[in-house]
């Protein structure tokens, strides 16, 4: 038995040596193959680069370069791997020439199960002065063609390939429901804020004096602007009290939160009288517009319960 095994090993070694011997040792070959050797389907393009280094006295014949469109046949049938594109570069050197062959193959075959395939071996010819021309074999490269779809029922537990990620459940419906509920929740929250905030985004914000303060900033500091500003504050006071207000006492009776600014309210009503009813009266305010803005801000603070 041992003898038989030794004989078989010897035969294989002899055959391998015979293959190596077929290629001229003076020519060095290096190939750059595609990054992966599985997962190709019909239509995919695989590109391999072959770099040949030959002494200066040996020349690669251009006519021997593989021709695009060829499909190696085996037993009369095409392999389904077609050479689509060939790029050839020649880089002459002092002692040797370097030839770069870039071969692009396209897969034209498929299968319901994974099947082996190969980029076929190619042959180029070298020759030179006082040299007999000879063929040089570029070795084939094996890879696997994958099916386009899973054939038959798949038992996930048996498919332990690490070339694809985990199987994902279809969560489209759940995502739609989640989005709908989130929108509903947001609308409800905004509604609650609006209602509890007395028509404002947040409670105690956007009250009559807060709105008046924003308006006051836009009113020019002129005589007309002053009348407009005082009238605007009157509107805010009325909105706060719920009816027309003509004195500090009336407002404070209805809204005790304004007690801390009683003196300012008195001055405001004095200013209002001077502006609208009695120009001879002097409220004793040097810069009325600035004072009104300050006064309005203080009213806004009272409105928010900050004082």
């Amino acid at each position: 038995m041992k003898r038989l095994l030794c004989l078989m090993l010897l035969c294989c070694t002899t055959m391998a040596q015979a293959e190596i011997i077929e290629n001229d040792p003076r020519i060095k070959i290096r190939t750059i193959e595609p990054a992966r050797d599985v997962g190709y389907t019909v239509g995919d393009v695989l590109t391999r680069t072959v770099i040949l280094e030959a002494p200066s006295n040996l020349v690669l014949f251009d006519t021997s370069i593989p021709i695009a469109g060829s499909d190696k046949k085996r037993r009369g049938k095409g392999s389904g791997i077609e050479l689509r594109k060939v790029e050839f570069e020649k880089h002459p050197g002092a002692t040797s020439n370097r030839y770069v062959l870039r071969l692009s193959y396209q897969v034209f075959t498929t299968s319901v199960t994974a099947k082996p395939a190969a980029l076929p071996a190619e042959y180029v010819k070298f020759g030179g002065k006082n040299e007999k021309s000879f063929e040089f074999r570029i070795p084939s490269w094996n890879f696997r063609i994958s099916p386009l779809a899973v054939f038959g029922s798949v038992v996930v537990e048996r498919d332990m390939s690490d070339f694809h990620g985990p199987w994902l459940l279809d969560d489209t419906f759940n995502r739609h429901v989640l989005h709908f509920l989130l929108i509903l929740c947001a609308i409800s929250l905004l509604g609650l804020l609006y209602v509890h905030g007395t028509h404002s985004w947040l409670p105690r914000m956007g009250g009559p004096f807060a709105r008046a303060y924003r308006d006051l900033k836009k009113i020019p500091a002129t005589a007309e602007g002053l009348a407009q500003a005082v009238a605007r504050l009157h509107r805010a006071i009325e909105a706060t009290a719920g009816n027309s207000v003509f004195s500090t006492t009336e407002l404070i009776e209805r809204k005790p939160a304004f007690v801390p600014i009683r003196a300012d309210l008195e001055r405001f009503f004095a200013l209002s009288r001077a502006v609208f009813f009695d120009p001879s009266a002097s409220p004793g305010i040097e810069h009325p517009m600035d004072w009104l803005k300050t006064f309005c801000r203080r009213c806004r603070d009272c409105e928010r319960g900050l004082k």
């Binding site: 009348a227 005082v230 009157h234 509107r235 009325e238 009816n243 027309s244 003509f246 209002s272 609208f276």
Partner: peptide
Amino acid sequence: IIKTIAAP
């Protein structure tokens, strides 16, 4: 009326 009508 006094409570409703504002001045100014």
